[in-house]
């Protein structure tokens, strides 16, 4: 009796839960947004000039999304990315006066330490990642504001020499390739997905859940340190608002890329790139159409909500770890 009921339920997979639909929908969304803005801007959005501009604005978001992608795969969230980026950027700019490699390392270490704080409170103190990272978002925004009270922190004047397409592109691609290799070919992806889909069962399968979580929070911080370097190269200085709203941009991007907000088995690595591109074309297109900033936020909010409603995995529930 019981098993027949379950079999019937299994046969009727809801349209939105079918793997093929989950794969196609974000791609279709990307295509629709491209088509729509191509039409609305009479092709201006896809001129080589604006594409180059779009690209140069995307590196930071692309890189910092990788870490959050890892965290969200195991069912967590990270809202502290923007503040983390701000503080790391200060370190990068400060150290860039001594040595550029030292600056990168400094940014990575700073991000990693902040990530470790997130991890500590989430894993050891058992506070949900949502709360911990929101607290740290405020805390490190405060640090960032304090350090930039008198004047912005300036990087070394020739830091902008790295701000060219070949360097930035290579930098971003190398990070992506490494992240992809680690995610796909070391078992990390399998482990993170298992934690996201069922933490207890992952533990019983021998995964060191606590250690993995700590490491991932730290790694996400380190990766954001790299994004802070990209940000410093591009802007040359840090003000108190550096990186603000980054966390929401990351979140919207990943969801637009088809990432289930509760993580788990349905996560795909390409969600990052597809999502960031969709988001950048959407927001870039809105700017080009000279839509007022307030209205842009409204539109992005509606799109975000719609996507979340479509993609949240109701089987696993909306449990944020």
């Amino acid at each position: 009796m019981d098993t027949t009921v379950k079999k019937e339920a299994a046969a009727k997979v809801p349209f939105l839960d079918r793997p093929i639909v989950r794969t196609i929908l974000p791609i279709a969304g990307f295509a629709i947004i491209c088509g729509l803005f191509y039409y609305l801007t009479n092709g201006r959005l896809f001129s080589s000039k604006s594409l180059g501009l779009l690209m140069s604005q995307s590196y930071m978001l692309l890189i910092s999304s990788i870490g959050v992608f890892f965290i969200m795969t195991m069912g967590g969230l990270d809202f502290s990315q923007g503040s983390m980026l701000g503080v790391s950027s200060i370190v990068v700019c400060y150290l860039s006066h001594y040595n550029i490699v030292l600056a990168i390392i400094g940014g990575v270490v700073t991000g990693g330490l902040i990530g470790l704080i997130n991890g500590f409170f989430n894993v050891k103190r058992k506070i949900s990642s949502f709360i911990v990272t929101i607290c740290n978002m405020y805390l490190f925004r405060g640090v960032c504001a304090y350090l930039t009270t008198k004047s912005p922190v300036y990087g070394v004047s020739d830091i902008s020499k790295y701000n060219n397409l070949p360097f930035m592109m290579t930098f971003t691609v190398v990070i992506f390739v490494i992240a992809w290799l680690v995610f796909t070919f070391t078992g990390l992806g399998s482990r993170l997905k298992a934690i996201g889909a069922g933490e207890t069962a992952a533990r019983f399968a021998g995964i060191r859940v606590e250690r993995t979580k700590m490491l991932v929070y730290m790694a996400a911080g380190c990766i954001t340190g790299l994004a802070a370097f990209v940000n410093s190269v591009k802007v040359g200085s840090v003000t108190s608002t550096a990186g603000s709203q980054l966390e929401t941009q990351i979140m919207i991007s990943l969801v637009l890329g088809g990432m289930p907000i509760s993580g788990g088995a349905k996560v795909r690595f390409y969600n990052i790139i597809l999502g960031v591109m969709t988001y950048k074309i959407l927001s870039g297109g809105l700017v080009m159409l000279m839509i007022p900033t307030q209205l842009q936020q409204l539109i992005l909010g509606i799109v975000f909500l719609g996507e979340v409603a479509l993609f949240s995995d109701r089987n696993t529930g909306m449990v944020v770890k």
């Binding site: 298992a194 889909a197 069922g198 207890t200 399968a205």
Partner: peptide
């Protein structure tokens, strides 16, 4: 809850301890 990650594939479930 404990033996299986039910919202994951059969493949992942069988391979997890042997990765």
């Amino acid at each position: 809850n404990e033996s299986l990650v039910i919202n994951d594939t059969i493949c992942e479930n069988i391979c997890l301890p042997s990765l």
